[in-house]
Amino acid sequence: MSSSTIPIWLKSLAWAALTWNLFGVIAFIIQMMMTPEMISKLPLDQQTAYSNIPLWSTIAFAVAVFGGTLGCLFLLTKNALATPTFALSLGAILLQQYYNFVVINSLKLLGASAIFMPIFVIIIATTLLCLSIKGKQQGWLR
C-alpha cells in the first residue's frame, strides 16, 4: 500500500461519518423549517428555547453540520483541507453546545439524558479531526 492510498478502514469510517453528518444536515433543515405552529406543540420550556435561538447559535449549528459533511467529502477525496474543515466544525459544535448548556441550560430543560448526544457528537468530531491529522502525517491526504 502506497502512502497516498487511504486504508480501507478509513474509507469505510469516512463514509459512515458522511452519513452521520448528513443526518446532522437533515436535523438543521428540520429546525430551520419549524413553524410557530410546530413550536407551539412542544412543552412550554422547549417552546421558549426554540423561539429564542440566537442567530449566532443557528450559524454555529450550520457550520458544524455542513463543515462536518464537507470535511468527510475532503477525507474521501484525500484532500488535506479535511483537517481545517473538521477543526472549524468542532469549534462550531463547541459554540453551539455553549448555547445549549450554558445559555438555555438544556440539562435543566430536558434532564440528564440531554447530555449524551452532545457528548457523542463532540467525540465523533474530535475523532474525525484526529484522523484527518493522522491522514496528513501518513501522507493519505494531500
Results as ranks from 00 to 15, higher is better:
residue 65 V to L: 00
residue 52 N to H: 13
residue 79 N to W: 06
residue 24 G to T: 02
residue 74 F to V: 01
residue 78 K to Y: 02
residue 46 Q to V: 07
residue 79 N to A: 05
residue 61 F to P: 09
residue 41 K to H: 12
residue 82 A to S: 13
residue 8 I to M: 08
residue 51 S to L: 06
residue 27 A to G: 12
residue 62 A to T: 03
residue 81 L to M: 15
residue 53 I to K: 11
residue 19 T to V: 15
residue 20 W to N: 08
residue 33 M to L: 14
residue 9 W to Q: 11
residue 41 K to T: 11
residue 30 I to W: 06
residue 56 W to L: 09
residue 22 L to P: 11
residue 32 M to G: 15
residue 80 A to T: 01
residue 57 S to M: 11
residue 74 F to N: 01
residue 4 S to F: 12
residue 51 S to Q: 13
residue 48 T to F: 14
residue 22 L to D: 01
residue 5 T to H: 10
residue 30 I to Q: 10
residue 12 S to T: 08
residue 44 L to C: 00
residue 85 T to F: 05
residue 41 K to G: 08
residue 14 A to P: 04
residue 64 A to L: 03
residue 61 F to M: 11
residue 86 F to G: 06
residue 83 T to Q: 11
residue 26 I to D: 09
residue 79 N to H: 13
residue 23 F to W: 12
residue 32 M to F: 06
residue 36 P to H: 04
residue 39 I to Q: 04
residue 2 S to T: 08
residue 88 L to V: 10
residue 31 Q to P: 01
residue 35 T to E: 01
residue 3 S to E: 10
residue 55 L to I: 13
residue 4 S to Y: 03
residue 56 W to C: 04
residue 58 T to F: 05
residue 42 L to M: 15
residue 78 K to H: 13
residue 79 N to D: 12
residue 76 L to C: 03
residue 51 S to M: 09
residue 72 C to F: 06
residue 75 L to D: 03
residue 86 F to V: 05
residue 42 L to I: 04
residue 20 W to G: 11
residue 35 T to M: 04
residue 78 K to A: 15
residue 27 A to H: 08
residue 81 L to H: 15
residue 42 L to N: 08
residue 59 I to W: 02
residue 49 A to Y: 14
residue 55 L to E: 01
residue 66 F to V: 08
residue 7 P to N: 08
residue 80 A to G: 10
residue 67 G to W: 04
residue 32 M to T: 01
residue 20 W to D: 05
residue 73 L to Y: 13
residue 8 I to S: 10
residue 6 I to L: 15
residue 80 A to P: 04
residue 84 P to F: 02
residue 30 I to S: 11
residue 2 S to Q: 05
